[in-house]
Amino acid sequence: MNLKESQILETALTKLFPFALLFSGYVFSYGGAFPGGGFQAGVIIGTFIVILELVFERKIYSNPVFERIELTGILFLGIALIAGFMISGYPFGGLYSYGGSSYPLANAMIWFLNMAIFLEVSGSMVLIFRNFLFWESDDTVRIASPHLQQAVMPQESTVLRIPQTKRKKEFLCVAVIAALLIAVSVIVILLFMPAYTPTVHHGEMDVIRMTASEYSIRNMVSVVYLGPRVIDTFLEVMVVILTVLGIKVVRGSR
């Protein structure tokens, strides 16, 4: 299928792009107080760039540009660490402990951490999808590389196929084992798993509410997220960078 022929897609996407930018900016900038955040905004803008590249069949910016965008994410993490330390005496402005940080400082820290995740995710989304779209090399543009197509729908291969009857027997054996495993695990879970109380206790919910109103944050998810946010941001940034590096290594090795 040649998407390049479609005038409708090209016109519609070019008209929609500013609105996508605006929407991702809205989701990002209200991330601390309302539903939304850095990750969601990054995914919105990243996938939109991927769609643009799919339709126009060419790269908008080169790979190093998005790699630099990714690395800028770490820079914002560092800014949050050092600025928080200089202002309040704690790294990240004492965000990791309730009450260790004042309201305006906490909001600023959340903004910086959101920015780190936003840059990280928007850069890596494009890079990850690009590795599957432009598999051949940096110059030749080939959407949906033949390797990937064959992998999804394998055709006749030169390797000797196992006879059909033997396959059926193997499949039956494996299916019986799988059914047994599933039955045992379900029984074990039902019998021995302790009853999990679904909601936080009433007092804890009140604490969350009070903290939310104190920091004037309306999104309670981000209030719960206030403490572990620093560690979580660091973890996400590291995982994303390692993934992009890993894909690069896998792709490059001959």
Binding site: F132, A151, E236, V240, V250, R251
Partner: peptide, 20 residues
Amino acid sequence: LTAIVIGVCFNSLAIACIVK
């Protein structure tokens, strides 16, 4: 939120390995 991010990363890395 974190589980989703790690899931995306894991899937993409695994598929890259399979293509190789």
